[in-house]
Design a binder for these strands. Structure first.
Ligand SMILES: [Zn+2]
Ligand SMILES: [Zn+2]
Ligand SMILES: [Zn+2]
Ligand SMILES: [Zn+2]
Lengths: 127, 127
DNA sequence: ATTAAATTGTTATAATATAACACTATGTAA
DNA sequence: TTACATAGTGTTATATTATAACAATTTAAT
């Protein structure tokens, strides 16, 4: 696994330190002092970081979180829990869940190369 | 289940007839001849239709499809297969899958009120 | 040194979605 | 039937999310 480029490292560090998912333009505001001035610079770094599994996109929120599954071997098999009140997002790492979904075949016998699952509910604090 | 309003009905009929997911502004273009002129009119109808389970949003595509699970009792438990080449989207209705996910509990024993699952791969035609 | 691939910088623009306000229709209850 | 609440509509403006197009630079192998 090669090193990250300058922009990729700056943006990954920011997301990695964030306790919550970050949105692209929030990232932009936070890295402008480091010389990253344009949305495209952010989106390019995000695209790459997603591709190599260092971060994941929370599709329902248009936001990004760092992967904490030991630098995700499973960026093609992602599952998250999302609190609908405080918006806390946690990556789920359940062997049985990923096994079930990775092996899932639909009625036509189609097997999939990738999945993304988002669970919604209330977190401990919000219950 | 109450009837749909005028705009809701127009927009639902359009999505329901479409063989593929429709995007909001594509919907807008298609209903302008029927007097729906502004994005907000479309988004409001979409919001309501999603809420009552007549349509679903495909989050990874920002697009909408009609529910064909006999007017989805399961709008809070959705699963789709998405072809990464032709972008065909099919709603998966698998009793075992929905049972597994509805009963899924994470490490903290948290149970969820809702989920959305998107599988990616190649459809029959595209393999 | 040469070259290909990846990354960066920049300006402009496209695509997706919501805020705010005024008005109209519909259903329910005094 | 009047009063009231709720849902839906129409409209303008604006916010948010994301990509196109082009030129330059860096990186890592030959
Ligand atoms: Zn991960
Ligand atoms: Zn919470
Ligand atoms: Zn459905
Ligand atoms: Zn296909």
């Amino acid at each position: 696994m090669q090193n990250l480029s300058k922009n990729q490292q700056i943006i990954f560090d920011l997301i990695d330190k964030s306790p919550e998912p970050m949105k692209a333009y929030s990232i932009l505001h936070n890295v402008q002092k480091k010389g990253i001035k344009a949305p495209l610079q952010v989106y390019r770094a995000l695209d790459k970081l997603v591709e190599i599994g260092k971060i994941h996109k929370i599709e329902s929120r248009n936001a990004f979180i760092a992967c904490h599954n030991s630098s995700c071997q499973v960026s093609k098999a992602t599952a998250f829990s999302i609190c609908e009140i405080c918006e806390k997002v946690t990556e789920i790492s359940s062997a049985s869940l990923s096994k079930y979904l990775t092996n899932f075949k639909d009625k036509d016998g189609m097997k999939y190369s990738k999945y993304n699952l988002e669970f919604f509910g209330l977190c401990k604090k919000c219950r």
